[in-house]
Design a protein around this nucleic acid. Structure first.
Lengths: 156, 156
DNA sequence: TATTGTTATACTCTATAACTATA
DNA sequence: TATAGTTATAGAGTATAACAATA
């Protein structure tokens, strides 16, 4: 993505031939939302990824690194760095699973819960602003559609 | 994205805390659609990106590399490699702009038009399959919503 | 001076392979 | 043998900086 914001748009946006292409639309909606969310999280200790990790860890406990990785659909090697980052900020802590010492159980600290709450508020506000062009009912339908596709068996 | 397909999903998918988070939904819908599209394009000479470049070049002529880059919202340095790839396959050709010799005008060759047509058919079929869980009206509404967001002024 | 194409370079994100320790 | 965490490494994708040619 090229500066997504600072970059000027051509006269015709989106280009006529791609205005109905799902891949193009998804890519740029995602880029637009990420660009809109980033500044909203500058005051918080976590970015969108960190928020997602905290949310999964806080939602279902206790969770090992690998279990959290499965729920987020990221590789367990990716999870290592994510947890490292959160742990360095004191937002989570690792401890060995007493029942299976191969595993690290990851707990969300008090500071982690606080950061998650603040990030969540900023994110939800960013979502409302971003989805405003759809209207309230339209935004709800849009999210429902996304959820349907994400939940769909194989293809989604 | 971790093998998106081969990877097993956890019991709860998407995780409860993220089922309403736009970034998470967009990321995984996009990943799912890309995974669904890729095999559909194995027989064609272009991938999704190449198809998008061809479509923009064929839709509004003549276009320089930089103009095409603006329409696709990619950097002009990125466009160089994209055109290189298409040119190596004989799908586009570069020629200097007679009115401004700093510019390369990029033409879609006959082979390029043929590849674009075949890719377009495969992609549209993949879209229909992927969006099937929404129903016909739902799929149309979903695409309309994406287009609205992509077209929105600054935030999208 | 500014713009276009190009190259070299670097950065982000994430996966694969291989190692250690546990099971 | 298989799994969890870790590390090192590599690949994809894309950006920034700098240069040559042209305007």
């Amino acid at each position: 993505m090229p500066a997504a914001d600072g970059e000027q748009r051509p006269d015709e946006w989106p280009p006529a031939g791609l205005a109905a292409r799902l891949a193009f639309l998804l890519k740029h909606v995602q880029a637009g939302f990420n660009a809109a969310t980033e500044p909203a999280l500058t005051d918080v200790e976590v970015d969108g990824r960190g928020y997602a990790v905290l949310t999964v860890l806080a939602g279902e406990r206790p969770l090992s690194q690998h279990q959290a990785a499965l729920r987020l659909a990221v590789d367990r090697t990716t999870m290592v760095a994510l947890i490292d980052g959160l742990e360095a900020k004191g937002l989570v802590s690792r401890r060995p699973d007493p029942h299976d010492r191969r595993r690290n159980i990851v707990d969300v600290t008090t500071a982690g819960h606080a950061a998650m709450k603040r990030a969540g508020e900023a994110i939800e506000q960013a979502e409302r602003r971003f989805l405003a062009p759809l209207g309230e009912a339209g935004a709800r339908q849009f999210k429902d559609a996304l959820l349907t596709l994400v939940s769909a068996p194989t293809p989604g």
